[in-house]
Design a protein around this nucleic acid. Structure first.
Length: 848
RNA sequence: GCCCGCGUGGUGGAAUGGUAGACACAGGGGACUUAAAAUCCCCAGGCAGGAAUGCCGUGCCGGUUCGAGUCCGGCCGCGGGUACCA
């Protein structure tokens, strides 16, 4: 008997697939197309188990679709621009380009042994000049279409390194390298007008039926449509030009509870005051300390500064409210000014308590409730409350009714108007960095901002740059930066900002349909291959990447690069979980944690006997050293084992914990299947057997279950069925013909998960052609039904017995049979059933 | 802070509102072997019991239902996102 030797088998079949170009995508007139795409990876240099899992899932779908007669597009590439390459350059003196391409080569070498059904001929990286040059063309078209503009926006400024920091480079308000306190600073930046599409992006979510509901909900909340009232307070003692302060509120029904007006430190009025008043300037400077993230701003201590300016309440002009500059008000949302109603908002309550402002309830749980509040009263908007200081609508109404009534009343009385606003902000794409796609515009003293001519594209990144000083090397590269103005020809300067890497990943799926074209896309190919039928990736991309891509598809349609049918580019989305592993930790002399790789740990100890603390599974990360190198797994057990394991142990949308023993078990199972194939091949071809019918029935049930499993992303359940069927086949005494049919079908059903082993079994049993291209087996419905069924009998919802009855037994008969059961009689103990519920084929419940 | 998820044996997990724990790992017992490895067979949620069986049990508290792991409300814990990580 031969042994299962994946190293030899896997290389052989990969070679066969490659020579036969089995996975080369080609448009076909007579086959339905299927485009499956996994979110492309960042080229860190090493593939990890998360990649293996992500691509294995996509591969199962791709191979299944190939077997069910589709013309399949399953491409692969790299999201290759980004910060890490510049960090490597600064830390190790490697050029970002060299570092990135070396990593890409390494990762391709690690991907290939996994035997994925990828069309490698379509490979590209977003840092390829071919790709980003086309992206620049796209940008120019979008600029012309009015989808791009410039405005000021805040960035994290490191005052020591004199450079802009990414949010992740700000640690507890300080620059990660310099340790200096980070400040928020304004720069003129490029923006995509995604906010023009807020309503469209929101309403189209309803059409995305094959997206997870949670992702649609997250996007809905992110877009944040709200209806509210916009109106102005008239000011007292305010500087010229600020006689009114425009505010936006989603709770106009609380207007009678207003106790202060708050403006953002970046509000125009604040800026005027800052100029003439050192105290205000100091306060605003204080507010600008720290990072730009919503989290940093929202969790910071609420600070306010009384400007001394007062406003009049619109309905009671004798009532004056103070105007505060407050650090928690964002200039980006609404008008950058609010009125505070401490009684019904937790933040305002905290603020009012701190600055000793009145807390005036406008509604209460009931008429007799006290209006002295210990905390903000914030009931659901759908809850009916009593308006003790209502001014519109009924005294007893829900918040929603109160809001509508308040808007109507205010409009009728000339106090502002009802408006719809969105939380979604325009997409800032400028990055003050080298390793990204250059923004193809030129700044000319005479002509202003001038788009580069298309015939001058690509604007290629210069190679001769250095990273010995902080900041953007493009900024200090005169020979690259200085260029004639495309319009007037006089000396001018290139834009030195590069694009956000989200731009790169917002259209790569479209580029895969014509990766070599000298235009961004080719309409014929886009028409044929789009949309992506199944997109697979991590839920961490639920909002930004997926929302930007949806916007880009629209922008590409407007600029003629995608058909109208592709404005929602991803028909179905699946978000898979992470691969996790236990963390092994010891402590150094100072008590600080020291992490150890899994292979350094044996039986809970290091090689020198030091006991190791085991921390429960967490996402695999280099810093925690809880990583398993796919290459080690492949060299010990083969790619099929790695693929089988990452699918078998957890549902795909959840995290999977990598365990060495689990991987070993997967290998053992595949070896068993191999041995089983050998044994069947060696059987006497003419020998009679028993149980052919039973074996074939089990086989058809397995075909049905595995097919359903794959179609519904129930890979772990499909694999459980394959385990069960393998056990059945192993024990079978059926004829050779039946067993051969069973093992060949098993090979087909396993082929999306363990394609190399499946090919080998197929060939061993004399199968025609490749199992990869053999038509997917069909379950015979007649083989799926059995004539009896086991019914559990409950008494008052507790299971007490079970009976076996013919499938088609009428309800009355089933009732009789259930009541005749000894255990049921014993449990009833003479009691008369009030009701008997019979769910055909499922259960009987006797209620007493 | 805000938005979105998730929580089931020792472990990973299974279960269209219908027998909770499929399948697998670790564990225990056995067969084969001079022995070990490998392989095969059996047991296995907790408590009580020799067993039959009974009671308890899906993070916690409450609700809807003939019936809840599943639906609803409130908590707790963990994870993801929070617009310059990708």
């Amino acid at each position: 008997m031969s042994r299962y030797t994946p190293a030899e088998i896997e290389a052989r079949w990969q070679d066969v697939w490659s020579k036969n170009e089995v996975f080369k995508a080609a448009r076909s007139a007579d086959k339905p197309k299927y485009y499956v795409l996994e979110m492309f990876p960042y080229p860190s240099g090493r593939i990890h188990m998360g990649h293996v899992r992500n691509y294995t899932m996509g591969d199962v779908i791709a191979r299944y679709k190939l077997a069910t007669g589709h013309s399949v597009l399953h491409p692969f590439g790299f999201d290759a621009f980004g910060l890490a390459a510049e960090n490597a350059a600064m830390e190790r003196g490697i050029h970002p380009k060299d570092w990135t391409y070396q990593n890409i080569d390494d990762m391709i070498a690690q991907m290939k042994p996994l035997g994925f059904s990828l069309d490698w001929s379509r490979l590209f990286a977003t840092c390829d000049v071919d790709y980003y040059g086309q992206q620049q063309a796209l940008f120019l078209d979008m600029l012309e279409a009015g989808l791009v503009y410039r405005k000021n926006a805040v960035v994290n400024w490191d005052p020591v390194d004199m450079t802009v920091l990414a949010n992740e480079q700000v640690e507890q308000g300080r620059g990660w390298r310099s340790g200096a306190l980070v400040e928020r600073r304004e720069l003129t930046q490029w923006f995509f007008k995604i906010s023009d599409y807020s309503e469209e992006l929101l309403s189209a979510l309803d059409t995305l039926e094959n997206w997870p509901a949670k992702v649609r909900l997250m996007q809905e909340n992110w877009i944040g449509k709200s209806r509210g009232l916009q109106f102005a307070f008239s000011t007292i003692d305010a500087p010229d030009g600020h006689h009114r302060i425009e505010v936006y509120t989603t709770r106009p029904d609380t207007l009678m509870g207003a106790s202060f007006v708050g403006i953002s430190p970046d509000h125009p009025l604040a800026k005027v005051l800052e100029r003439d008043n050192a105290e205000v300037a100091a306060f605003c400077a204080e507010c600008r300390k720290g990072g730009t993230t919503e989290e940093a701003i929202e969790t910071a201590e609420k600070l306010g500064f009384d400007t001394g300016i007062r406003v009049r309440h619109p309905f009671d002009t004798a009532h004056e409210l103070p105007v505060y500059i407050a650090n928690f008000i964002l200039m980006d949302y609404g008008t950058g000014a609010i009125f505070g109603c401490p009684a019904h908002d937790e933040r305002d309550f905290e603020f009012a308590t701190k600055y000793d402002l009145p807390i005036i309830a406008t509604y209460l749980p009931s008429e007799d409730a006290s209006d002295v509040l210990e905390a903000a009263y914030v009931p659901a908007k759908t809850e009916k409350v009593f308006y003790n200081r209502g001014f519109a609508g009924e005294p007893h109404q829900t918040g929603l009714e109160g809001i509508d009534a308040a808007i109507d009343f205010c409009e009728a009385n000339g106090v502002g108007q009802g408006v719809t606003k969105y939380r979604l902000r325009d997409w800032g794409l400028s990055r003050q960095r080298y390793w990204g796609c250059p923004i193809p515009v030129v700044h000319c003293d005479a002509c202003g901002v001038v788009p580069e001519k298309k015939e001058n594209l690509p604007v290629e990144l210069p190679y001769d740059v250095s990273f010995d000083t902080p900041g953007n090397p493009l900024d200090r590269h005169p020979s690259w930066r200085d260029t004639p103005c495309p319009s007037c020809g006089t000396p001018a300067r290139r834009e030195t900002d590069t694009m956000d890497t989200f731009v790169d990943s917002s259209w790569y799926f479209a580029r895969f349909t014509a990766p070599k074209a000298d235009t961004p896309t080719v309409m014929e190919d886009a028409q044929y291959w789009m949309n992506v039928d199944q997109y697979i990736g991590g839920v961490e991309h639920a909002i930004l990447h997926l929302l930007y891509s949806r916007f880009f598809a629209r922008a590409m349609q407007i600029t003629g690069h995608l058909p109208a049918s592709a404005v929602e580019p991803f028909d179905a989305l699946f978000t898979q979980g992470m691969v996790t592993h236990e963390i092994y930790q010891t402590r150094d002399a100072n008590g600080r944690p020291v992490y150890h790789l899994p292979e350094e740990v044996m039986d809970g100890k290091l090689a020198d006997g030091t006991p190791v603390e085991v921390i429960p599974s967490a996402k695999m990360s280099k810093s925690k050293k809880n990583v398993v190198d796919p290459l080690n797994i492949i060299s010990s057990f083969g790619a099929d084992t790695a693929r089988w394991f990452v699918l078998s142990d957890s549902p795909p949308e959840r995290d999977v914990e990598w365990t060495a023993s689990g991987a070993e078990a997967a290998f053992k199972h595949l070896s068993r299947v191999w041995t089983l194939c050998d044994r069947i091949a060696a059987m006497d071809k003419d020998a009679a057997g028993t149980g052919d019918e039973d074996l074939l029935r089990a086989m058809h049930v397995c075909i049905h279950d595995v097919t359903m499993g794959i179609e519904s992303f129930g890979f772990n359940a499909a694999i459980a069925k394959l385990y069960a069927f393998t056990a059945t086949l192993q024990k079978s005494r059926a004829s050779h013909a039946a067993q051969r049919e069973a093992i060949m079908t098993l090979a087909q059903l396993m082929s999306p998960m363990t394609p190399h082993l499946a090919e080998d079994i197929w060939a061993h049993q004399g199968g025609e052609g490749l199992v990869t291209t053999a038509p997917w087996p069909r379950a015979d419905d007649r083989m799926l039904v059995s004539d009896t069924v086991t019914l559990p009998i409950q008494v008052n919802g507790k299971r007490r017995a079970e009976i076996s009855v013919p499938v088609d037994m009428p309800k009355e008969e089933v009732e009789k049979a259930a009541l005749a059961d000894q255990a049921v009689i014993r449990t009833l103990d003479g009691a008369t059933p009030k009701k008997i519920i019979v769910v055909p084929g499922r259960i009987v419940n006797v209620v007493v």
